[in-house]
Design a protein around this nucleic acid. Sequence first.
DNA 1: GTGAAAGCGCTAACAA
DNA 2: TTGTTAGCGCTTTCAC
Lengths: 335, 335
Amino acid sequence: MVTMADVARSAGVSTMTVSNVVNGRPRVGAATRERVLAAIAELGYQVNLAARHLRAGRTGVIGLAVPELERPYFAQLAARLADRFEAHGLRIVMERTGASREGELDAVAFSRLRMYDGLILSVVDLDPGELSRLNTDAPVVMIGERALPSRFDHVMMDNVEGARLATAHLLSTGATRVAMIGGEPSGTPSMPGLRATGYALAHGEAGVPVDPSLNVRCSFRLQDGYDAIRSLLDGGISFDAVFALTDVVAMGALRALADADLRVPADVQVIGFDDLDEAAYLVPSLSSVNPGHEEMAEEIISRMLAHLGGAEPTGPKELIVPAHLVLRGTTRSSE
Amino acid sequence: MVTMADVARSAGVSTMTVSNVVNGRPRVGAATRERVLAAIAELGYQVNLAARHLRAGRTGVIGLAVPELERPYFAQLAARLADRFEAHGLRIVMERTGASREGELDAVAFSRLRMYDGLILSVVDLDPGELSRLNTDAPVVMIGERALPSRFDHVMMDNVEGARLATAHLLSTGATRVAMIGGEPSGTPSMPGLRATGYALAHGEAGVPVDPSLNVRCSFRLQDGYDAIRSLLDGGISFDAVFALTDVVAMGALRALADADLRVPADVQVIGFDDLDEAAYLVPSLSSVNPGHEEMAEEIISRMLAHLGGAEPTGPKELIVPAHLVLRGTTRSSE
DNA sequence: GTGAAAGCGCTAACAA
DNA sequence: TTGTTAGCGCTTTCAC
């Protein structure tokens, strides 16, 4: 391993001068700089970030901890964040929590231990009590769906309103029995609970009673969406619209509907949540709730940058970004 | 920040004893261990990984550097790897290279600088010369499509054969004009070049001449696939099948075909490459080339573990995992 | 079974 | 403009 000391020896200067050159600090003579750079190139020297971190406490790396690496929503969020952070000289790295308490705690612990200047944490399973007990001084911006009182900044999507908009659209276009895929009992303090609340709200406004048998609880993979529709069909539960809690689940549902020779949107309307890139390209294209992708990214970045700059971010600690409906081919039009 | 010294002081022992407790080393008295653990809990101490790394050179973290975070192929690969590495007590973190030379070089540099015990690098743009000049002693396993002589282990998919199988199937089921989306001139040393080679090979075997106007060069996002089909249609170039270089591009193509009222597979067959999870759920479901996901993951893991264990992996440095066809609804059947 | 000393590679603060 | 000193928090080595 080539160290600064090796470079310094080879160039006939002190390690401090090498450090100054490497970090682009001003007060280095042009000739000295040349010699140092030559030595660096010759020896193939590379900074040891672990040492730099230990000493200087900075790494230029922001962690993004998400429930699962393969969920398109997070992959697409990561891409948006990466672009923006790069403009500020920061790299973003992604790791998974497994949507578990331990994984999420680990992520926060690691943000101090590890090489992150800051952490963006998608919280699914951690509860407020444990959060506040975490004594980390690292900048943390939480994202995700659930209101979670804590001392950390939190950028949220508007799950209730998004779900309400989606369900209301279905009910206003002739649907009377809207199946929900992936919901939990309304009121549960989690993403599925919040979206179920919006679903119930829309029913209340439309004067349509909520039928609990129309909710199929499940996880959020493609197969889960498929299985959910199958179980409704097999159970003889009739429905004329589907509110899928995520676009991925909606994709699974669309496949199951096709297999059952049900036409979308003529027989069954479908609407998802997340507005993934893929939604617009499905056949028929998937109506969905856009949770405010761009605004969320901007808010996350600006809060994180403020923390890194040593300032408290301006604006509320908890921010709910507005959601809006994107109507496409899987739903019928309003009039 | 709470350090080992703080814990040691509080427990009335030396830092060394704290270190021994934290790392589960054997020779610590039971009573001492209890006192130390109590102090750790009380103070909320957490190991500083930067310091540990600097001193011990291990982090328990494997880096996965991919061209773009939002490409489903890599997200799904990451998920497969994460599961397996976890069983060995290793975390995986994902970062992007931007598919650029600099980004890829950076990733390798960082693997030593940074907190990775090993790096899995998806190489797109880096050339062999630069690779061999990299003097890193960190374990690197390269993945990706392109044969790239170097001293690093390299697990590849069989691009040529996969593309040949896909194209051959189209030609054997009545297609005579197979459009290619995303190809480069056959022979170019890159993934698109290799897949184009397989495409040409199949044409040769079937005695069908390759028409260069059927290849639309493009990038690999959904919109690119859409635009490619549109440009063929607008250019009046007839085709009765599409070989899309990736499933994502195929999805874009399917949408464009639907917009043009072309039926799949009756008017136009479509086959993709990657066999993403989504492929089976599209309507119609997408035929694709499975590049050997499971076997690739196994090979990557076993090579990396061997490196970490200080051994040279057994087996060839360059391994090409066999690909196979997965026929679904966007292609016609053979007979 | 426990502790003292040394040092991993780097940089902040100051001295020359 | 350049160099010296000290030390970040931990673990290796070796003495007790």
